[in-house]
């Protein structure tokens, strides 16, 4: 199962990739903004996206919308990992089509819990 981790902070990417590795998902592709991420997604093979919100060039929100607009991106799980905590922001993310939302800072168990939750809902549907 290949993950796409999108964040402009190299530190955050390292931490997310590291956490993913620990909870059993070692296969990860990285991108540092929405545009790069969209290109990586278009290459195919991505089965789970974890994205930041605030990024230069293309924000995570626009990235999520762009993925959802693609025929091959309608069903891919998107988890947003961000510091944006306002309720309107969370609702905007929902409307953009993200499957779950984790606020920074997070712990690996929380990350795993959200990934599991998204995957289990997907499996049941």
């Amino acid at each position: 199962m290949r993950f796409l981790v999108v964040d402009d902070s190299a530190t955050m990417r390292r931490i997310i990739v590291n956490s993913l590795d620990r909870v059993g998902y070692p296969d990860v592709v990285e991108a540092d903004d929405g545009q790069t991420a969209l290109a990586k997604f278009a290459e195919g093979g991505i089965s789970f996206i974890i994205t930041d919100w605030n990024m230069p060039n293309m924000s995570g929100l626009d990235f999520a919308r762009a993925v959802r607009a693609r025929a091959d991106g309608a069903a891919v799980p998107i988890l947003m990992v961000t510091t944006r905590s306002a309720r309107e922001d969370i609702l905007a993310a929902v409307d953009a089509g993200v499957n779950n939302y984790v606020l920074k800072p997070f712990t690996p168990p929380v990350l795993k819990e959200k990934i599991d939750a998204v995957l289990s809902v997907g499996a049941a549907a």
Binding site: P77, V94, D95, G97, V98, N99, V118, V121, A125
Partner: peptide
């Protein structure tokens, strides 16, 4: 009303 992916309308 917001549609949450994989969960339905909220």
């Amino acid at each position: 009303v917001h549609t949450v992916q994989g969960r339905g309308e909220m």
